[in-house]
Design a protein around this nucleic acid. Structure first.
Lengths: 144, 144
DNA sequence: GAGTAGTAGTTGCTTTTGTAACTAACAACA
DNA sequence: TGTTGTTAGTTACAAAAGCAACTACTACTC
């Protein structure tokens, strides 16, 4: 019964993607969690601000496709840790420009290096052509 | 600073994997959630039992790499819905063999078809060679 | 066969996420 | 000006996940 096609759980792309995402995320999580007590969303917010410059909360939501409540809570937590600060925008007082503090910048620099190293190490298992296919397809899938 | 390497968030594999996993999982979630009020872990448990046959809770934990508390609660929920039943094992009364009820089997059959269709539709965007690379690399990464 | 260690599975408590409703500010237009 | 609609961000409450302690049982060892 139900076995005719031989379609397996390991062939099911959402499952496979989740497994791979889970393994890698949990491994990298150790860095920002143990060193800075940060959560995943906090790390992403720091990355965005550090890599792409100051922006508002909703900019981060749009770029990273994270829900605004999650971002809101991450910002609050980072503020408490003194990793970022807010500046109200003159022409629209609903918005606040977020920017890393010097400490936050240091945290970013450290984690950024770590992330690059982590990625390189992980991808070293595959040749350049395979890597390119992987990145291209994942990007495409994420845009579905 | 920190821009020398040009390493981008979109180059960071854990991030990319999460985005892709998230998009696809959320899309498929609609099927088991709206039709059967099931959670992701419940769907996975049903898949395992339906596709690979009766097994114990810890078999599922090991195969799917899900924590035992999550599996335990999923089993409970599926039992309440009358999608599965338990049979105590004679030689080791700690273990219970789990098996789908006829209703559970129907649910599996329906979702299994849906999953196969979903996967095929998604992968239709890519040629066979790319698909092969994707599956191979993701499997490899998940085993890291 | 009593004592110790290890495994299967559950439960209670805490942390994190999801959802929806909310406040405050802007914008457009009568 | 005032009313209506929209957007930025927060908060409150509910659902789910993570973690650690627990029960019940098996297995090993003296």
């Amino acid at each position: 019964m139900s076995d005719q096609s031989g379609f397996d759980l390991k062939d099911f792309m959402p499952y496979l993607l989740n497994q791979a995402a889970d393994v890698t995320s949990r491994r990298f999580e150790v860095c920002y969690k143990s060193r800075y007590g940060m959560l995943r969303t906090e790390w992403r917010v720091v990355f965005h601000l550090g890599r792409y410059g100051d922006m508002t909360a909703s900019d981060i939501c749009a770029r990273a496709r994270i829900h605004k409540t999650k971002v809101s809570r991450a910002i609050r937590a980072l503020e408490v840790k003194r990793y970022l600060g807010r500046t109200e925008r003159a022409h629209d007082r609903r918005q606040e420009t977020l920017s890393l503090t010097p400490t936050g910048r240091q945290v970013f620099d450290d984690l950024y290096r770590e992330a690059a190293r982590f990625d390189a190490q992980m991808m070293a298992h595959f040749d350049a052509a395979d890597q390119a296919v992987l990145r291209r397809l994942l990007t495409r899938i994420a845009e579905l």
